[in-house]
Design a protein around this nucleic acid. Structure first.
Ligand SMILES: [Mn+2]
Ligand SMILES: [Mn+2]
Ligand SMILES: [Mn+2]
Ligand SMILES: [Mn+2]
Lengths: 229, 229
DNA sequence: TTAAATTTTTAGACAAAACTAAAAAATAAA
DNA sequence: TTTATTTTTTAGTTTTGTCTAAAAATTTAA
């Protein structure tokens, strides 16, 4: 029996920048809380009020981008998830462009990428992807969804989970704030930096490490925000 | 007597995308009608209504970006002119990027550049400028203002003004519409193309020209929209 | 299991940017 | 110089996305 071709027509929905930002935040939060994303959590991330979030959730629900029932938290639909992943794709590809081609530091790109991610052109983003040689990870080590929405994976652990004596490589940051990235700059830690764990202090969680033959001590806060392999 | 240094503090004004689009249109129109830009002309360019334009002119006037007195047409202030030139700079640099780096055709770039031009980052645009080797002209032959707002000039004439027998080079288009650019593609005319004027028909203004050893006839409409040198 | 605290939603208002319809001013024609 | 036409402005709405304040539902604590 012959397999029939299935053609899915995905109607191009027009989305405002605000709608896209909500969708992206819901996407990021739903990875952390898989039993529905709270109104307040969204409000916190977008620096807005819970009442504004409720309004927007109704709008996104009308467009079938989210499953929303009041007081029950919100979920992305497949359509919503794909759209969110495309915004993340845009964001991270632009971050790569800014670092690799325009000489930005990894702590300078996020804000600009927040604007560039909303430029609507499939050709633009796919050609940019090609121009950058189809990168798999952005300047902070986060995976870049491909044109189909598939997300590359990498085995990684937090530095805090590694035993003393091991030698590992920095492959990403969990906290991508400017302050944390600038701290890492000061300590000469960047993606690809080789780190040797010398000693773990169980009392307060500080860790003594060696980087480029320098020995430094980092706090548990740092160790809980650095991904290594 | 010693020259004193004059420091001008230009307060960074926040502008919406809509305000920037109005400013850009007023800038382009004021080059054509130096005795004040009409409300209707602006409305036509932005595909909106005259009443909306009046509203916006008041807003731009409050921000001191335009000189506006009702019924008298509108002028850009120095501040408004500089801001408009920066938007044009953004637009044209992005067009160069799309053609030179991402392989877009010259008839595909305008729409995308209309969005990219509004991304707010001085560093972004200046680094892009550098990355592109400080180009002076965009893919349609239009001049790109530098970071100070200075605009390169080039001696150019319309093809219609050239006498029979002359050999010239295409350096720009007056009409930048997709339809016109696609017509030029079909006739194998692009920036840098060498053209020899064989014969001018005074009755209807058609011109017989030679391009890459092909002889074709073009209408006066075409000849009035091609810049040559 | 009732009371208190927290979270979420509703109701009503506001600013930005657009629109329609009508009034006012400027220009062109008779 | 009147009258007619065109241009521009005003007045009053609409939509989007936000807000505050108050009500309703849910969760936590007693
Ligand atoms: Mn980012
Ligand atoms: Mn990133
Ligand atoms: Mn253009
Ligand atoms: Mn152009």
């Amino acid at each position: 029996m012959k397999q029939k071709n299935i053609i899915i027509f995905v109607k191009k929905i027009f989305m405002t920048i605000s709608e896209e930002n909500y969708l992206k935040v819901i996407y990021h939060l739903s990875n952390l809380s898989p039993k529905g994303v709270n109104t307040n959590a969204i409000a916190g991330m977008l620096d807005t009020k819970a009442s504004s979030v409720t309004d927007m959730l109704k709008k996104l629900s009308d467009k079938e981008l989210v499953d929303y029932q009041k007081y029950q938290g919100v979920f992305l639909t497949e359509k919503g998830k794909l759209h969110a992943k495309m915004i993340v794709r845009n964001h991270r590809l632009w971050e790569v462009f800014l670092v690799e081609k325009l000489g930005f530091a990894w702590d300078e790109v996020h804000e600009v990428a927040e604007e560039l991610e909303h430029v609507r052109s499939e050709k633009l983003i796919n050609q940019l992807d090609k121009f950058l040689n189809f990168p798999s990870f952005d300047p902070h080590g986060d995976p870049i969804p491909n044109a189909k929405g598939e997300i590359p994976t990498i085995a990684k652990q937090l530095l805090s989970e590694i035993e003393a004596g091991e030698s590992i490589t920095c492959v990403g940051v969990k906290d991508t704030s400017v302050d944390f990235l600038k701290y890492l700059n000061k300590q000469q830690i960047s993606l690809g930096t080789k780190i040797k764990i010398l000693e773990k202090e169980s009392f307060d969680g500080t860790i003594k490490i060696e980087i480029n033959s320098n020995v430094i001590v980092i706090s548990d806060k740092i160790a809980n925000n650095l991904y290594v392999k």
